[in-house]
Design a protein around this nucleic acid. Structure first.
Lengths: 156, 156
DNA sequence: TCAATACTGGATGTATAGATCCAGTATCTC
DNA sequence: GAGATACTGGATCTATACATCCAGTATTGA
């Protein structure tokens, strides 16, 4: 609701945003593992919460944990092989609208025009995410000065 | 977070979904006002909550309240002149990403590639919503049997 | 005018996303 | 092997979206 408009429409939940930040930060330093603490500082995500997010990403094999001294997390695959869609799905699976949200069990599985439209919008977003990799996000073609500290040079 | 995946990625909040359902239901019976109770039944939205949603829509002049006997709500404008974007903005304004969510006040207002991508996705959704009216949603060109009860014939 | 209808608005309750804490365990370095 | 580092997982706390309740007010129609 947000009568006072504290919250506003967002395509991304906070958690998805956090996951993406973490992955981009990892991609920027693809060689050496980074600890949760380090990542939390760079991405400005609350440390303990980021820890949970990283666990989700770990379960989905997007990142690899390394314990002990000099441990931390690193990407499981090169940035070019990890899509935004995978990242999103790791923390909050995109669920296309399969059946009418009203729960009417009439006339098979067809959606009414309203939810067809809504699902189409979802599909658009999904497609955009699927076709974008972490490498794409890191690439700064136009060299516009980035506001975020992520896009360091990708080391070798 | 949703470790158990109770919740999943959604472009629409519950409240936005409710607002759209209500507007579509109103558009389907564009002539006679419908009471909150009637709308709640058709749209399967909790009555008291729908009441709040309708108040938001009313404040944004998308619907008009009519008090007393034979009262209810009706659309302020013909369905063709109300866009999905207006409906969404009435309950949860879409906020484009203006500044880096990290709050860094560096280098003017440019976004890093990550948030550029994210904002681009938002823009896509916004555009899709802006170009769709309630009338579009009601129109059932392919005559696929709707799963939802909304698209009654629009009466004269 | 009266009574019924229906919206209004504030107060309050509940469920869930977001955030924290800490004891336990694995790994590294010396 | 010892100690330090760092992830793991469960329990708990908080903020907010979602939902309810009710007294008050405006309107209708007889």
């Amino acid at each position: 609701m947000s009568t006072s408009y504290f919250w506003s429409f967002a395509v991304f939940s906070q958690t998805v945003e956090y996951a993406l930040r973490a992955l981009v930060a990892l991609a920027a330093e693809a060689n050496c593992p980074q600890t949760t603490r380090q990542l939390a500082k760079v991405t400005k995500v609350p440390g303990p919460y980021l820890s949970k997010v990283l666990q989700l990403l770990s379960k989905q094999k997007l990142v690899e944990p390394h314990r002990g001294v000099r441990g931390g997390f690193s990407l499981s695959r090169p940035p070019r092989q990890i899509t935004i869609l995978e990242a999103v799905n790791a923390v909050e699976p995109i669920e296309r609208i399969q059946v009418c949200p009203l729960g009417l069990k009439a006339h098979g599985k067809r959606l009414c025009p309203l939810h067809k439209k809504m699902d189409a919008a979802l599909a658009e977003v999904e497609r955009a995410f699927a076709s974008t990799t972490l490498a794409d996000v890191l690439a700064e073609p136009s060299a516009s000065v980035p506001l975020c500290p992520f896009p360091h040079a990708v080391r070798a």
